[in-house]
Design a protein around this nucleic acid. Sequence first.
DNA 1: CATTTTAAT
DNA 2: CTGCATTAAAATG
Length: 680
Amino acid sequence: MAADGAGELLQAKVSTSASSVSKEATEHDTLKYHLLGPSLTKAGQDTVDQQKVSEVIYNASKGSKFFNNEEVKDKNLTQKIERILVKKRQLERLDLASDRRRADDYITELEMTRDLSQTVVHIDCDAFYAAVEELDRPELKDVPMAVGKGVLTTCNYHARKFGCRSGMAGFVAQKLCPDLISLPLNFEKYTAKAQEIRTILAEYDPRFESASIDEAYLNITDYCNENDLKPWDAVMQLRAEVHEKCRITISAGLAPNAKIAKVASNRNKPNGQFMVTNDRVTVLAFMRDLPTRKVNGIGRVFERELDAIGVKTCGDIYSFRQYLSKLFGEKAFQFLMQTYLGLGRTSVQPAEDYERKSVGTESTFRDMSDPNELRDKLRWIAEELEKDMTRTQFKGRTLVLKIKLYTYEVLTRQFAPPKAVCSADDLYNYALPMFAKLEKEIPTMKLRLMGLRCTHLVSTKKPEKDFFGMGLQRFSSTDSHDSDGNNSSRTVTDNKGEWQVWPDSEFEASERQERQAELEEAERLSQEYAQQECNEEEALEEANRRRKHGREILPNPIPREKGGQKLDSGIGFRKPETGYKKPEPDKPVKEVWRCPVCQRPQDADERSFNEHVDFCLSKQAIKETAQEHFPLPLQAVALRETAGRENANERRRGRSSHKRKLDPADRGMKKLCSGVAEKG
DNA sequence: CATTTTAAT
DNA sequence: CTGCATTAAAATG
């Protein structure tokens, strides 16, 4: 969900004050900026007086423990930035010719991977929850309204004029806008509406990728070729279709890759679209003036660090290329260079394809210090986690205990039990010693949060029979992980990784019951789709799939025209049709079939293709893949055989698994900015 | 150097 | 002023 709101004003203030003015004033300003929250970014809302807004927020939160903690964090960051600047001044006296050369070589290498042959679209629903609520109560369209009680998950554009935004505490929002109407969350409703929209998206790209409940990436290259449409017109059509059938307005960004598409979708919001054409010069020009903060992966912290050394826009990155890896680390360096060049992934894929790495639960409560009460709480968390482990069908080889003190300070401890665990008893028994140890270390064990998480997951899914009726080797809970600690027979992620993902920077204060209700709704919807779209055989498989996965999967809806096609059971899966995609006349193409298991292109020869698929299957990447592919006709995909067609990220993808490995450049950079690299 | 912890998104 | 997941870097031993 786009967190609209202007940051430019304060951003400018932060930058100037960072270099001059008194230190106290500086800290005051950066803190206020920090308090504006993570969602102050992207699109601008010029009608808002950010000065006033930040003043109100500051005064409203002043004195709270939360505030104090933010103050501490801000001070630490300011110190960290000071260290970065010191380090940079040291570097300036050194000869960095080799670093510069290395950066230039990397740029050359990256440039060879540039792929301008694809069109990626980022779809973003406008004030989604608020818009859904307005469908039921049209009178709310004309007044400032927000969704979410204690904290706003989103608000309509009237409310945004007052400075309200997602992620803001409810009482703060009320101060900014006394007439604000706050509605409780009705999550099933939003999920149902999201599914309606997804049904339409699937017709444009059946393998579209949901990024959150109201955001998705599509690769519309094939769609445009098949229907002889220009990307712009295809997206106009898509948006009109969504508006007409779902009564929801969406904004879209079109670009040669996902990273730019994401930025672009914010340019003409709400109810608009923006395109960055597939042209190197256009891309570079677009990046040159783009403030760093607009890029996915650069948040409040990294923005300030970059600003401190003089990088305000993505174009500024270039002239600092020789410093970046020493100041921010290697991954950050790579990420920034790709950002400067406007490179990003061109591939999108359903979220089920992502590999889950951990399952955890945590809960916040009133300050608590009684040891017995805390143990009860821990026990309860363990029971909650057991449910999640059962649902997602995992055991964990490592258990992580997390606590948050009443001061908001967070601590974690981990332990690797002798065996993979998932039962509440085991979870509790292994967590308790960690907890007891913490009790000894911490003078006043007064907590506001406790959490448990399992990592180094091991699937506990029953092998049963696989999709083709071939027996699969049984794998025990402890022998199916490879040396990376990853499990190659990983199950499909549960839908919390997917449509239950909160919109960016937004959250709900919902209780587990609400989530349960949502799951039930998802199940119901899934059944509906099964009936609508599948023939009897397929419906049976659909039912089977749900049995195997519980209620966890909410697959991409099946496009109408394609869902009707019948598959030869089993074989159809492995015998792709040819001529699915028209080759472009002016470019040499080589026909290949894409392996449904590992997603890698294979020679378009039936025998070798089947051999390859067998190989992949024997490596057990299988069941989930079969499931996600079953409803879809297998298509031969023609790939252009041009160098750099596949970008570096795609190539780096693991051989052993078809699951996507996350790459900093792929998906926004997670934590690459935590400070000066001081080793060596 | 491997593992643990922190912190950012 | 939440909850869940992922990632990278720093700290630790």
